[in-house]
Amino acid sequence: MTKIEKRGGTLGVETRAADEKRTLVGYAAVFDVSADIGGWWIERIAPGAFADAIGGDVRALVDHDMGRVIGRTVSGTLRLSEDSKGLLCEIDIPNTTDGNDLWELVERGDISGMSFGFHVTKQEWDETVDPPVRTIQGVDLIEVSAVAWPAYDDTTIGKRALQEWRAANSADEEITDPAAAPVSRAAHRARLKMDLDLRVRSTR
């Protein structure tokens, strides 16, 4: 099973009630905000990163638990949109144990974060600075979550990805046969893409 990375931030989630409908509203991700990922690299999400993903079948969860669904785009109970700030989420909270508990915990301020899970589909690394800068330009969005602990507690997959990227650059520099260089770069990019599996970024 693919290990999930988690990311923290500074934005929260709020409750809105109208016409007997309870809706949680918040940003699961913000654009162009630099996050220090364990001192290994700086990460940013580019505007438009979710443009091709928000129309898909995305679920809203509690704490990334696939068994605790509280909304879904195809049913209209989860609405996603990009604005100038980031990925805006609106979740119509169900009258279930998870839904009622979550509503109470958000109103009390015990749960104040949102995050998201995704596969990276397009990215850039800038190795001309230290630490390097990773810009996420496209994602395949899997889920958004209300979370109690938005944190930087796991960078294992990302560190491996950065090491692969550096190895690819180093290998390219040593290649003396110009015809072999494109093959080597493509192989490293393919392996890197496989390593960059399910991600989670959080804001609170």
Rank of each mutant, 00 (worst) to 15 (best):
P47G: 10
W40Y: 07
A60M: 10
G38N: 01
V58N: 02
A49Q: 03
F31K: 06
Y27D: 10
I37C: 12
A29G: 00
R59G: 06
A60I: 11
G38A: 02
A60F: 07
I45W: 15
P47L: 07
I45R: 06
D52L: 01
G38V: 01
L24P: 04
V33T: 07
D52M: 00
L61D: 05
V62Y: 13
A35K: 12
G39L: 11
W40Q: 03
A28N: 09
V33E: 14
Y27R: 05
F50R: 04
I45V: 14
G55E: 08
P47Q: 08
H64D: 14
A28G: 11
D63W: 06
G26T: 03
E43H: 02
F50T: 06
W40N: 02
G48V: 02
P47W: 05
V62M: 12
G55F: 03
D57C: 00
I37D: 14
Y27V: 07
I37M: 11
A51E: 12
L61G: 07
Y27E: 09
R59H: 08
G48M: 00
A35F: 13
E43V: 03
G38H: 02
F31E: 05
A28V: 10
A53R: 00
I45H: 11
A51C: 03
V58D: 02
W41E: 15
G55C: 10
R59D: 11
